[in-house]
Amino acid sequence: MQNIIEINNLTFQYDGDSPNSSAAVEGINLQIEKGSFTVILGHNGSGKSTLAKLLNGLLLPTEGSVSVDGLLTTDEKNIFEIRRKLGMVFQNPDNQIVCTVVEEDVAFGPENLGLEPSEIRKRVDSALETVDMTEYRFAAPDRLSGGQKQRVALAGILAMEPECIVLDEPTAMLDPKGRKEVIETITRLNKEKGITVILITHFMEEAENADRVIVMDSGKITADGSLFDVFSNTGLIVNAGLALPQSVELLSVLKQKGFNVKPGYISPKAAAKEIYRALKGGTL
C-alpha cells in the first residue's frame, strides 16, 4: 500500500523553549498508509497535538521532514495543496465555525478553493448528507449541540474532498451521545469513502475501530501496533499516563490472578467472550 504521510526523523521545539529544554516532538519516524484508520493516544503534553500541527504545516519541523502525498511541508508553495489534501478538526467546535448558517460554513472551504458555484453546491450538499446534517443546513450553528457542531466542522473539511482527515481530540468537549455520533461518522468515512483517518485522543474506547494504535509519551512514539497488541501491554499504557479501559483493567487483573485471558479486548461483548472462553476452556 502507498503511504499518504511520510515522517522522517522529525523533531520540533517551540520557540520560547530554552535550548536545553526537551523537544515537544523528538526524532519521530512514521509512515501512514492510504485508507488506514490510525489512533494516536497520549496524555496532555505528550506531543500528540504538536505532531498533528506538523502534519499540515501549521508548524514546521525544527529538524527532519514531513511530507503529505509526496509534498514536503517545508516548501511553502506546497502548503495550499497539503491543506486541501489533509483536513483538520480540532477539539472545540465553537472555535471552528465562522458563518451564521450551517451550509455557508460548509461552503467556506470550497469557496476558498475557487470552485464553480455549481460544484460548491454539489459538494456542500453531499458533505452535509455524509455527516447526516442535511436537515440542519439552514440552521444557525450556535443552536446546535456539540456533537452536531463537530459534524458540521467535519462536513466543512469533507467539502474540500481531502484524502486524509486528522482529528485532534474531537470529542473531548462532547457528551456521550455527541461522542458516539462523531466517532460513528468518522468510522463510516474511513470504511465507506476510503478516507485516511488519524484520530488523536485520550479516550481509549475510541480506539476500538482503529487498524493501528500509536502511543506517544514525552514527544516520542512508545508503542505502535494493532489495537490488540498495544492494549495487551497494560504496563506501557499506564506508564504513558493513560487510563486503561475498564474492560482491559478487568481482564488484566484476571490474568494476574492466573486466568488464561488476554487483556487486549475493549468492547464489553468481546471482553465477556474472552472471560467465557477461559472459564469454559477448563485451562485455569
Partner: peptide, 20 residues
Amino acid sequence: MGLDVPVVTKILLELKALGL
C-alpha cells in the same frame, strides 16, 4: 433512558447472557 451502566457491569451482564 439512553443511559449506561459501568463497563464492568456490562461485561457481567454479557456473561450472564452467555449462560453463566
